[in-house]
């Protein structure tokens, strides 16, 4: 059964229709890459799924739970939305780390705030916080950042910052992790370390949706690729196939432009 189901998402900004009805689905443990030129709507699609924009219509289901329904106009409680938000994680293009916190605190801040809502928080405070910290340390060591836990974001390279932000998103144990062009703000020599981390995550069966410009990487790491053009999915299919053997003219044109 699909863990993510996106149905007929539409979104306009003023008179510009950015998403003209986008549908796709993804099974647990699979990796989907979204490719397409700038302005094709891929980032808007990601932002709609992550509640950073509200879609005009459509339906989004995560793990059998409807997290967005354009037909449902009842007022949502902020808390409910937050709960749903936590099912999915997002890694930003610009990292958006919190500059005044060190690496470890960046990773644990949201988790600790969330833990305060637990009914047993007061009784087991010490234990809960220790567990959170331990888990964060494990994540950071997976990211190869064990020696940086007390550093501040301004002391890290772009690649290190992006790895911290991946650990921060993972700390909340999302069902699906989204990446918004995770390497676009990085120097070419630093993209490799991020791609390596994502590759590792894919191996551990993390369900991921990646908006990317790295065609070769998309082909290698993803199970499926969706090609967006002008607010619609112009072509989709198995990763190897779609890159090696594009069927639509638009995708052929896009791929040849990229390889230039």
């Amino acid at each position: 059964m699909a863990i993510l189901e996106v149905k007929d998402i539409k979104k306009s900004f003023g008179k510009t229709e950015v998403l003209k009805g986008v549908s796709f689905s993804l099974n647990e443990g699979e990796v989907l890459s979204i490719i397409g030129s700038s302005g094709s709507g891929k980032t808007t699609l990601l932002r709609c799924i992550n509640f950073l924009e509200t879609a005009d219509s459509g339906k989004i289901t995560v793990d059998g739970d409807v997290i967005f329904d354009g037909e449902d106009h009842s007022k949502k409680k902020a808390k409910e939305t937050r709960e749903k938000q936590l099912k999915i994680g997002l890694v930003f293009q610009q990292f958006n780390l919190f500059p005044q916190y060190n690496v470890l605190d960046n990773v644990t801040l949201a988790v600790k705030l969330k833990a305060k809502e637990r009914p047993d928080y007061k009784q087991n405070k010490k234990q809960i916080l220790a567990e959170i910290e331990e888990k964060a340390l494990k994540l950071l060591s997976d990211m190869g950042l064990s020696d940086k836990i007390r550093s501040y974001p301004c002391e890290l390279s772009g690649g290190q910052q992006q790895r911290v932000s991946i650990a921060r998103a993972m700390a909340l144990e999302p069902k699906i992790l989204f990446f918004d062009e995770p390497t676009s703000a990085l120097d070419p020599e630093l993209t490799g370390e991020i791609l390596k981390v994502i590759r590792e995550l894919a191996k551990s069966n993390m369900t991921m949706v990646i908006v990317t410009h790295e065609m070769n990487f998309a082909k290698e790491v993803s199970d499926y690729i969706v090609f967006m053009d002008d607010g619609v999915i112009a072509e989709e299919g198995k990763a190897q196939e779609i890159i090696s053997n594009p069927k639509t003219e638009r995708l052929q044109a896009f791929l040849s432009k990229i390889s230039d």
């Binding site: 919190f98 005044q100 949201a110 969330k114 909340l172």
Partner: peptide, 30 residues
């Protein structure tokens, strides 16, 4: 303060006031 700070707070499931007081405020003071 860049919009990304608020957005990061939001996608991490923090409330608006948590984001303001725990993330944004000290940056504003600085």
């Amino acid at each position: 303060i860049p919009k990304g700070q608020y957005e990061a707070g939001q996608v991490l499931g923090m409330t608006k006031s948590q984001t303001f007081f725990k993330v944004v405020l000290l940056q504003v003071i600085k």
